[in-house]
Simulated assay, not measured.
Amino acid sequence: MSDAAPIDWKQLRSRTPGDAERAALRATLVERARLVREHGWDGYRGEWTEGEQAGVAYLLEDTAQLTELGEPEGSVLTRYAGELYGFTGARKEIDSGLVGTQAWFAAARADLAR
């Protein structure tokens, strides 16, 4: 039997990441995209989760890597909607067509281009 505390689903459903968390996530994703551009994917496949790799690949518009991961564009956007807006916010974001999530990635691409 595990000694871990039970998961508080009510708290998780109501949690909404703030602007600072979203900015930190974007900075991390942009930095990782720069690393992949400089060094390629090989050094990072075992280091980052598949979700993290998918976010970087989507940011880089690396369709070959997304295919290798089995991650279509919609899957990546849905995954990141949860990261950006929390459980409840992600459901609303998905219903709206993931417009905010796409805008967030567009801003990250602009950061990467600088």
Rank of each mutant, 00 (worst) to 15 (best):
20 A>G: 00
42 D>I: 01
8 D>M: 10
36 V>P: 03
18 G>L: 01
63 T>Y: 10
17 P>F: 06
19 D>R: 11
103 A>D: 15
23 A>L: 06
70 G>M: 06
49 T>W: 05
100 G>T: 09
52 E>Q: 12
59 L>A: 02
60 L>D: 03
77 L>W: 14
96 S>I: 02
54 A>Y: 05
71 E>H: 14
67 T>K: 14
110 A>K: 15
4 A>G: 00
59 L>V: 08
9 W>T: 10
111 D>F: 11
2 S>W: 05
55 G>N: 05
32 R>E: 05
91 R>I: 13
57 A>H: 12
53 Q>F: 04
95 D>Q: 14
78 T>G: 13
42 D>F: 04
2 S>V: 04
46 G>Q: 12
54 A>D: 01
65 Q>F: 05
65 Q>H: 13
42 D>T: 09
57 A>R: 07
9 W>I: 13
29 L>R: 08
8 D>W: 14
26 R>Y: 05
109 R>K: 15
4 A>C: 03
109 R>G: 04
105 F>D: 07
46 G>Y: 12
36 V>L: 10
7 I>K: 08
25 L>E: 11
98 L>E: 10
65 Q>E: 15
69 L>A: 07
30 V>S: 01
90 A>M: 09
27 A>S: 11
42 D>G: 12
85 Y>Q: 01
36 V>M: 10
88 T>Y: 01
51 G>E: 07
58 Y>F: 15
55 G>F: 07
103 A>R: 15
92 K>F: 06
66 L>V: 02
101 T>C: 10
96 S>W: 08
106 A>Y: 11
114 R>Q: 13
61 E>A: 14
25 L>G: 02
89 G>I: 07
97 G>D: 05
20 A>M: 03
88 T>A: 11
41 W>G: 06
94 I>A: 07
105 F>H: 10
36 V>T: 06
106 A>H: 13
84 L>M: 11
77 L>Y: 13
21 E>I: 04
68 E>P: 00
109 R>S: 09
51 G>H: 06
2 S>D: 11
109 R>N: 10
29 L>Q: 03
2 S>P: 10
91 R>M: 13
1 M>T: 13
87 F>H: 13
59 L>E: 02
38 E>K: 12
108 A>P: 09
113 A>L: 02
100 G>W: 12
85 Y>N: 07
59 L>K: 03
93 E>P: 08
68 E>L: 14
7 I>F: 13
49 T>H: 02
55 G>E: 02
44 Y>V: 14
4 A>P: 00
3 D>V: 02
28 T>D: 11
27 A>W: 05
51 G>R: 09
78 T>N: 09
110 A>P: 03
60 L>Q: 02
52 E>V: 02
82 G>Y: 15
50 E>Q: 13
91 R>D: 09
94 I>G: 00
33 A>I: 01
82 G>A: 01
110 A>S: 14
7 I>V: 15
67 T>W: 10
90 A>Q: 11
20 A>S: 07
23 A>W: 01
97 G>N: 05
88 T>V: 05
87 F>K: 03
100 G>R: 15
87 F>N: 08
112 L>I: 03
61 E>G: 01
41 W>A: 00
